[in-house]
Design a protein around this nucleic acid. Structure first.
Lengths: 256, 256
DNA sequence: CAGATTTATCGTCAATCTGACAACAACCTC
DNA sequence: GAGGTTGTTGTCAGATTGACGATAAATCTG
């Protein structure tokens, strides 16, 4: 039925690289960490054109002999000076952005990744600017998204990253990857509140979360002046049934 | 700490395409459709090496001026001879597979997509083999996955596609995209059973699903010999709280 | 055409889960 | 040690769940 075998329909047997303009394969990183009840993202300020001085996600090229996730891990290690491999940093593929004109210079296909850094909640890991970046730092995610002035399509990528994290926290214990290996229920609840922009009831949160975690038996050395809290460890158990993010006001549950 | 700015760390300002081996950008398609209570996937049998005669996902190259999802839509239209654009075919990006040696010939980065075709449940859309494929046809997904003998990493991709669909059906009405625009609750339940390999109770399914759908007021002309069923239309409402897939036996909910 | 059969939908019931909130115990600061 | 703060457990009414039975509406069989 389709005789017009367009050049794009040919397969590798007849593929000649010179038929196609070359493609740059990069990774972009959405790196999250929580401090003081706020979800932060690592951003760099661009030093060169295009989008000079605009905020952008950190990233870099995928080397000829590495996969995208390996490249993401390498970039993350270079940027955070973190002894990656010791801390269980969560790193997963997010999505790939392929619009032909997303970079005005040439065709850049970017595989975005989501990275979650552990934090005790009071300080953020140091990060270093990459080679094309003037500076690097942490920015409150929800503020950045409301301001929405980022280089390339990075605002979209950041939004997708947040949505992925928020969604996955409903049926997983990923939120624990934003905390030290041992943590209290209040710390975990703080992470949920930071990401979801909610204020969850402490009692009910404890009731629903406890069976999914492993109680170490130890107690936190009272930090803030209250009763000592039990220290938990995350299991890789899926939460079933899911913890549901409170319905956003205005979206009816049962339209009649 | 890292002074050795590796070539891969350089940014576009200093990027020279000839520094990198060229990359082929392709799309792979995981196309699903349901008949007779079975979830099927469209596969082609490869005509050339490597993996000659093995089953593979349909796919093709991304053209120089199209995005990955556009390429996926084009390939889907070419393959199904379907008047895409009329039927609301669900098409979404799944994940990107970038392992350097996933294709022995050269570096092929593939953006996999998930496509859901509407079907009345009794027949499947015709599909045509692509240029490098000897034949194309529908195969039962769960059987194929159990057999697990596919070209390249396509078994992984197919598994990921199934997991995406199964997961999304918990909190969305995507399952309706595998049915005609108007459908009965039993048809919808059949889709759930086909994908999840479950047997859901009809009464409870009706109770939970009804408020998420739009009742057209019309009734199905009794096809199989029973009471006529109400015809529904899908809304894009998220299901809240989610419909939970029954726990797989052997995975305890509350380990104590 | 009169059952028998199949199918869709609604109803019931006990068990569980949920959200709201109170009660209590353990710790810090002054 | 008094007072404030924090973590955990308990209570209670309302909603949700899974299992299953009842009813109504159509087709199939003879």
């Amino acid at each position: 039925m389709t005789f017009d075998a367009t050049s794009a329909k040919k397969f590798l047997e007849s593929y000649n690289p010179r038929d196609y303009p070359s493609i740059a394969l990069t990774v972009d990183l959405v790196v999250f960490a929580v401090t003081d009840g706020v979800l932060n993202v690592a951003l760099v300020r661009r030093g060169g054109h295009p989008f000079k001085d605009a905020l952008a996600l950190p990233g870099g090229f995928v080397g000829p002999e590495e996969s995208a996730i390996q490249a993401a891990g390498r970039e993350l290690a270079e940027e955070t000076t973190l002894d990656l491999g010791r801390l269980p940093v969560h790193l997963e593929q997010l999505a790939t952005y392929t619009s032909p004109d997303r970079d005005p210079r040439m065709r850049v296909v970017s595989v975005a990744h989501l990275a979650l850094l552990a934090s005790d909640g009071t300080s953020l890991p140091k990060i270093a600017a990459g080679s094309d970046a003037a500076s690097a730092g942490w920015y409150p995610v929800h503020d950045v998204l409301r301001g929405k002035e980022m280089a390339f399509d990075h605002a979209t990528i950041l939004g997708d990253g947040l949505a992925r994290l928020a969604g996955k926290m409903e049926y997983t214990t990923v939120a624990a990857r934003l905390l030290p290996e041992e943590f209290t229920l209040t710390q975990l609840r703080t992470v949920y509140d930071a990401v979801w922009e909610t204020t969850m009831a402490a009692g009910n949160f404890t009731r629903k979360m406890t069976p999914r975690l492993h109680d170490t038996g130890r107690k936190s050395r009272g930090g803030a002046g209250g009763a000592p809290a039990a220290l938990f460890t995350a299991t890789d158990l899926h939460i079933h049934p899911p913890l549901t993010k409170p319905q956003a006001p205005g979206s009816p549950v049962t339209p009649e």
